[in-house]
Design a protein around this nucleic acid. Sequence first.
DNA 1: TTGAAAGCGTTACCAG
DNA 2: CTGGTAACGCTTTCAA
Lengths: 336, 336
Amino acid sequence: MPPTIKDVAKRAKVGISTVSRVLNNSGYVSPKTRERVLKAIEELNFEPNYLAKSLSSGKTRTIALILPDITNPFFPAIARGVEDAVKRKEYHVILCNTDGDSQQEALHAKALREKAVDGLIFTASSKNNKHVLELVEVGIPVVLIDRRVEGNNLDAVLVDNVAGAYEATKYLIGLGHKYIGFIAGPDVTTALERQEGYCRALKEAGIEVKEKLIQPGNFRYESGYTGALNLLEYGVTAILAANDLMALGAMRAIEEKGLRIPQDIAVVGFDDIPLASLVKPALTTVNQPAYQMGALAAEILLERIEGKRAGEPKEVILTPSLVIRESCGGRGRWQT
Amino acid sequence: MPPTIKDVAKRAKVGISTVSRVLNNSGYVSPKTRERVLKAIEELNFEPNYLAKSLSSGKTRTIALILPDITNPFFPAIARGVEDAVKRKEYHVILCNTDGDSQQEALHAKALREKAVDGLIFTASSKNNKHVLELVEVGIPVVLIDRRVEGNNLDAVLVDNVAGAYEATKYLIGLGHKYIGFIAGPDVTTALERQEGYCRALKEAGIEVKEKLIQPGNFRYESGYTGALNLLEYGVTAILAANDLMALGAMRAIEEKGLRIPQDIAVVGFDDIPLASLVKPALTTVNQPAYQMGALAAEILLERIEGKRAGEPKEVILTPSLVIRESCGGRGRWQT
DNA sequence: TTGAAAGCGTTACCAG
DNA sequence: CTGGTAACGCTTTCAA
């Protein structure tokens, strides 16, 4: 059995409350007593039992990060940002993958509540979010990341997807493209917003938005591949994909068709995952500061948890930036 | 305040121990009483407090996964494998990044012990491992993944790195290469073993192992890049990198030098991260079944935790397989 | 400045 | 079958 606070008390010949005080640097303890206690702790190699502490205090110093799939290259950076930010304050993070499944989200939410996590960071992926809102009602702070949930205002760290896609499309237009295809994402706000940015840029430039130039997609490589295949049939000269994975799939399709990037077809992605700069040609894409998003979300969450942030929830909206590389040809006037 | 077992007891007009029994399906409870209790639980929307449960039982149903960096593309699949395996049994996983720093490993180990995780899965990256061994001594099950730690036998899920690199090198030799460069990894067993496989294949083929053809590396993209630059100076016709990231860096260097892959230089990686199949030319590499490794490690750990596995620790050594793609030219005789 | 004692919400043992 | 009650290890009044 590991030593307990009681053992320390006995050895130092003090009461257990005194030990607790020196442990937490709370209340008064005379230097001499403190010394004795410290010595006892040392000799016993005592370590406080966190469970007991948590039960008593109600705090676990653990948060959860719920996201669709850590295997999706957009998320590791977020996860790392979160962990780095909370690590400094000695919190830990529980990682939960949901695959965008509402039921799994619910399961995790329930379990995490029972485990009394102090708060959670959530990438919503289903429409049905009542499980999370329940957590909020119970008083567990939640900050959303990347995706907003409807019908509730919560702290959130988002990216201006409309602006990002708008800028990317405008860049393509500026390069002279008129027949630009879009490979859409699944039915989540981020994807929808990107589509909106695409449409807006087109309209603003007086280019008609053609239904058939908007191919369905699901954020996965394969759907980018098939979407591009269709788009090529329609004779597009450029393709904007709602995320990088699909853009990569599109590149594969284009090359298999014997077309060259960017000479024949230009492609732009969204996310700026690590691969984007490594493929050939390097992918021009809209950068999302994933690491910072994670870190920022974590900081906001900790502030809520520690009561340093009160009042209305706030959305932090970051502006993504177009990173011009090789997949659209010469560096255009948009380069900054 | 959320309702407690006490509230339930009161409402159902039974003792709290009875409530506890129905909660855990332990001991005898008459159908009628059980019914009443269940009803009360329902009405109160009661949920057991896990902390209290844990304090009492000593079990947290939480494990930790300690690895260098989730941002390194080799690890997300492992993490996912671990989580999926453990999720079925309603365990959670705490994710810890160490950056291969022994001090951070120690910090995490200490904190996790305090938080009483039931066990942990560990990718050792520093030589100094006494912190982990301490956990083992305290009785916390540990299973190693990917890397062995010296001086102790623990459950481990490993890959036969020697065999993998040996096969890869032999493949290159079979293709007619005689001047094969190697970009080494940092000072961890996996990297060392891969180097050993490389040397062994060379020797077996009667090819001299030249010191200068072994470039230092640290598993990162950049070191692959610079390593390749040096290797090209020496006129190698093929490069084997100790991991994919470095192989990718090497590819970049080769192309920047105006050389073609695979016509001028062949390259082989190790890991088979998701990017490997996406780059052009697609990378021929040694596949490590990361997802399964994670899942397997998790299963072994749970068996230890739940006492279903006793006796001596055992190492499970998986055999990696060479995945032949495009970066070495035509499919050679090694294709299966 | 210190210690005793009452929780925190469960589990588990022991009578009944 | 069921209900008390003593742990589990710590925090936090409250007196002294």
